[in-house]
Write a protein that binds this DNA or RNA. Structure first.
Lengths: 211, 211
DNA sequence: CGCAGAGTTGAGATAACTCAATGTCGGTGG
DNA sequence: CCACCGACATTGAGTTATCTCAACTCTGCG
């Protein structure tokens, strides 16, 4: 259910999860009441992984929409590691893919200004969920986020996200409202977000695994 | 050798690396000539991993000090995955540990102001390289960085890093110069950086693997 | 000697933040 | 049925953290 916590920080951790449908946000809560969303989890991706030996979850997973997922014991993973090559291989793939997403988020938050930062986040989610890249101008993608979540994920304030979205629309890049992203001009959007060959290569590689 | 690139973005990727000694920075280069340092690699950690199927490295690794490392073919990893449980398990451990570091970096860059951001980066590196946590007041830790690298890693400008370091010293948190971090007051430092139970738990868990 | 890389400091510009008010919509209780 | 309330979105005005530009020092090195 939307708003539900699938697991909480500091809960004893013996399981990891594979999302089957819906959207999940994984975040770290801070003392001042704010939070940093570390990643949005899309169907087919794993979450809740902790370093081997860690006893607690280091962050919290919140269901953004209605979700279904399956929980796997870490035990099983270790047991299957050898018996079932396919399973371990797939697990490693998913970890590596998550890692790539995290690296891009780091560059996004560390280097981009608000305009391209918000644009990149929305693009990335659209690419990951649709498998399209480049995104197609005029097309709409369903991203069930509210502005608060964009703020928590980008490190900006909600108010600034609001102004930024207004600007992205008025300058003809994209339109986002009511959980729907409409691409106004895919080529311009690409240029806005282009900060090195890395950005495009990354999006290209994210599209490949359309689960 | 300092300044050498161990691998470059977009180089064909068939190997990953295990650092034996020295310090390595992994970064993404941007169009405007700046870069985002994604991670500092310490001895015992792996770098150069790409998602299975990717043909290129998605970032660049630069030796900061004299380094020694060994290169492993990805092939070997896949081949050993089943034959040699220990190897695959260790590989997964390292991936998971890297993931934890990345998550903390994301929160660091997304949520902290310059003062605590720089402080956290230095603390994290000291904890990871020494295995001490909490750090001990009055003790010095060797971190062969220049201000430029701190800037590239935190998403700040060199000039602001400089002012921030001055402030950290004058306010009695820490002193950093000539590649040496001196902890002035470990407890205050901890409080400065404390943005949720997460921060301490994370540092605690990073210390555990002193290679 | 002179030059390059690193660090430092000052002054002014600007992106993003804070505080405060207001609008819209859907749900809920009287 | 209407009034109220809470979540979300929007807008304005003033503040502040960080950036930019520019000058200057120090050190090591060819």
């Amino acid at each position: 259910m939307p708003g539900n916590y699938i697991f909480d920080e500091f809960v004893f951790s013996k399981e990891f999860f594979i999302l089957k449908s819906g959207l999940v946000a994984v975040f770290q809560a801070l003392n001042d009441g704010s939070r940093q969303i570390l990643r949005f989890v899309l169907p087919g991706e794993i979450f809740g992984i902790e370093p081997t030996g860690a006893v607690h979850h280091s962050n919290t997973a919140e269901a953004i929409t209605v979700t279904s997922y399956c929980a796997q014991s870490i035990e099983i993973l270790h047991r299957f590691q050898c018996e079932n090559t396919g399973f371990a291989t797939r697990y490693i793939n998913l970890l590596e893919r998550e890692r790539l997403i995290l690296l891009n988020s780091l560059t996004n938050i560390g280097r981009r200004d608000a305009l391209s930062r918000v644009a990149y986040l929305l693009m990335e989610l659209a690419v990951r969920s649709s498998g399209d890249y480049p995104l197609v101008s005029g097309h709409s993608y369903r991203l069930p986020l509210v502005q608060r979540m964009i703020a928590d994920a980008t490190g900006l304030t909600v108010i600034h996200v609001n102004r930024t979205l207004t600007k992205l629309r008025s300058e003809g890049y994209l339109d986002f409202h009511d959980g729907k992203l409409t691409v106004l001009n895919s080529a311009r959007l690409d240029r806005l977000v282009d900060l090195g060959q890395g950005a495009h290569a990354a999006l290209e590689s994210l599209k490949s695994e359309g689960y």
